[in-house]
């Protein structure tokens, strides 16, 4: 034994699975969507971890899930990076969603460089959140991103096609966007809650 680890710390970091779920302290990264906050065991995004958002197609409200969080972070003067967005990031709409555009940066990357760029942003510690669109990502890539988010204390969001649900993922939270709500497939610190009814605005 070269290090003494406090049991409380392990439990609070949700690294120990306990048969009887205990109430966890609320996290510092609420999603801004009341129904989702209520359903997640940490009452918000898993901190310093990777979140996978799975969608059937573009334009089903996938950004509405994260925009309140990004607005909160940029208004706090913290940097948010969008890596390889599939379309033009339309500034008027993002501004209308409450973001401070001065803290938003877009990174263009070729297909092979997306994961690298995302990892650099997450690991650097100078970005509060980084969003990436990974067309194909293997388990190893996602694990690297998960570790990078942990060491850089950043929120990582990876948007993927829902076909990826067939494969396991190291992400701390897997959230699927459905027609009339959200479904949590995996979340750290508890069993996945029932599907969440959520109407997009």
């Amino acid at each position: 034994m070269n290090a003494v680890v406090a049991l409380d710390g392990l439990i609070r970091e949700r690294r120990v699975w306990r048969g009887r779920p205990a109430a966890l302290p609320p996290g510092a990264q609420p999603t801004g969507i009341a129904a989702l906050d209520a359903a997640l065991p940490t009452r918000g995004w898993p901190e310093a971890a990777l979140t996978e958002i799975l969608l059937p197609a573009d334009g089903v409200g996938e950004l509405q899930v994260v925009l309140p969080t990004l607005a909160r972070l940029t208004r706090q003067g913290r940097r948010v990076v969008v890596v390889a967005p599939p379309y033009v990031v339309y500034a008027p709409a993002w501004q209308a969603a409450g973001l401070d555009l001065a803290q938003l940066s877009v990174v263009d990357a070729a297909r092979g460089d997306i994961a690298w760029a995302l990892e650099q942003c997450l690991r650097s510690g100078s970005c509060a959140a980084a969003l990436g669109w990974l067309a194909q990502a293997d388990d190893r890539t996602l694990r690297r991103l998960q570790v990078a988010a942990g060491s850089g204390q950043a929120l990582g969001f990876v948007f993927r096609d829902r076909a990826a649900l067939a494969n396991p993922s190291p992400a701390a939270l897997r959230l699927e966007i459905e027609r009339h709500g959200l479904r949590v497939h995996k979340c750290r610190g508890g069993n996945p809650p029932a599907p969440i009814a959520y109407a997009r605005s």
């Binding site: 990031v89 500034a91 993002w94 555009l101 001065a102 938003l104 940066s105 877009v106 990174v107 263009d108 990357a109 070729a110 460089d113 690298w116 760029a117 650099q120 942003c121 650097s124 100078s126 970005c127």
Partner: peptide
């Protein structure tokens, strides 16, 4: 970080919006 990204991805790969 921006230097590092620009060095690999290209001079104008990182930008802000308005």
């Amino acid at each position: 970080l921006v230097e590092r990204l620009r060095a690999r991805l290209g001079e104008d790969a990182v930008y802000g919006l308005r």
